[in-house]
């Protein structure tokens, strides 16, 4: 590999990580917001959120990405590849996060809320001080799992021209007519990140199980 290749991979890695982090940081609170709308059974909007989640969970990221990238300019909203990538990732992961948060909310014990009401906590305070810390803990392993799934689908962002790890590998392979080595380098870049998240998830699950057993 030439120094140019190495720097292409390094830049690609930065792009992959940056887009993933952006997707995660947007997807987490948006997913929570969507879950709260469903949990509160807001009329009409709650139904719409359920529909949004159902459709997005069934839509491959590549299809969603192509839709956003080609159709938005068509209706007068110009969008560059990176914005399209972040938008597609956030929409995709927010739908899955919504289901994770919602499961935790549905399993949340009613008497915990009542105890908070009985000491006069307002709705905002109840959510912030009593509900959120507990559902965040309960959702954490599933949320980390979703993060690793998100990173695993990022290579598809290259189809609209995002220059990430995968795109760098494809380009180098095409230039050298030796596609295998750059792909293996790409694997060596992705695997530790994903493995790190998978290990983190296992670690959290083990620690929580141990805390419950004690």
């Amino acid at each position: 590999m030439t120094p140019g290749d190495i720097s292409a991979f390094a830049q690609g890695a930065v792009v992959t990580v940056a887009l993933s982090v952006a997707g995660i940081l947007i997807g987490l609170p948006v997913g929570l917001g969507l879950a709260l709308i469903r949990w509160a059974r807001v009329p009409v909007i709650g139904r719409l959120v359920a529909l949004y989640v159902s459709i997005l969970r069934a839509t491959p990221l590549v299809t969603l990405l192509l839709l956003l990238f080609f159709a938005l300019p068509n209706v007068g909203v110009p969008i560059d590849p990176y914005s399209a990538a972040i938008l597609a990732l956030s929409m995709n992961t927010s739908a899955f996060n919504c289901e994770i948060w919602r499961a935790a909310l549905l399993a949340f014990p009613k008497d915990q809320l009542e105890a908070a009401m009985s000491v006069g906590m307002s709705a905002g305070l109840r959510f912030r001080r009593i509900v959120l810390p507990q559902i965040a803990r309960a959702s954490l392993p599933a949320l980390v799992n979703e993060m690793s799934l998100l990173i695993k689908v990022t290579p598809v962002l290259a189809v609209v021209g995002v220059v990430d790890i995968t795109r760098a590998a494809v380009r180098i392979g095409a230039e050298t007519y030796e596609p295998l080595p750059p792909f293996l380098v790409a694997v060596a870049l992705y695997a530790p990140i994903i493995y790190g998240l998978v290990s983190l998830q296992r670690f959290i699950e083990r620690r929580q199980a141990a805390a419950e057993a004690a």
């Binding site: 014990p109 008497d111 009542e114 009985s118 000491v119 006069g120 307002s122 803990r137």
Partner: peptide, 24 residues
């Protein structure tokens, strides 16, 4: 409303059958 009701509830303590302590 929630706020007014919350204010009154601060003056009525409640002890629950299943404790309802906040586990976190």
């Amino acid at each position: 409303n929630d706020r007014r009701l919350s204010q009154i509830r601060t003056r009525i303590g409640m002890v629950f059958q299943h404790f309802a302590l906040w586990p976190h």
